[in-house]
Amino acid sequence: MSRYEVRIVGYGGQGVITLSKMIINASSLYGNLAATQTEAYGSSARGGRCWAEVVIELDKNIKSIDYPKAMEPYDFLVVLSEEAAKNVKPDNLKKDENTGYLIWDTSTIQSFRAAKQIDKAIGIPIQRIAVEVFNNMVFGNSILFGVFTSLSKIFSEQSAIETIKKFVPSATINQNLEAFELGKQEAEKFLIKLKEAAN
């Protein structure tokens, strides 16, 4: 049994729920792993404090997820708002190799104390890049998805690309794939830095 626990927190409208749906599609629909996604519902999903979780079973022989909520410590945490950042503690994340990643948006979070104590924390100005490069905040989602795909390695890049094609309006597929690529590059740069730090 090897559960991969993902939690995404921020405000409704930032793409918290969309990102979680993209992750379950890539891992379960295209990646053929058992998975469960749960999300905040109601007013919180429409502008309030918002969260979404995905639990993915990495063992292909296990066909379903028992307990549906993500359990601490998480394998992956995505934090998109200052308010959500305040509640993060270093212990929220696993300490093992190749897991326990934190992605946070430096353009929406001014200070993130816990992130400094987490080795595998990657701060990226996601919203700013989305606006500067694509002139639209929504592309932040594909950037994040790129970072997630590269770091988590729980599904293939092909599965990720299929997912993007399913989720975004057809006229914006190419731009979203570019955004995905940007996210991937950020993740790769980060992984190199991590390796150097370890040496």
Partner: peptide, 9 residues
């Protein structure tokens, strides 16, 4: 309420 809003394959 929980089961109704879960997403699964």
């Amino acid at each position: 309420a929980y089961l109704g809003h879960i997403h699964e394959p």
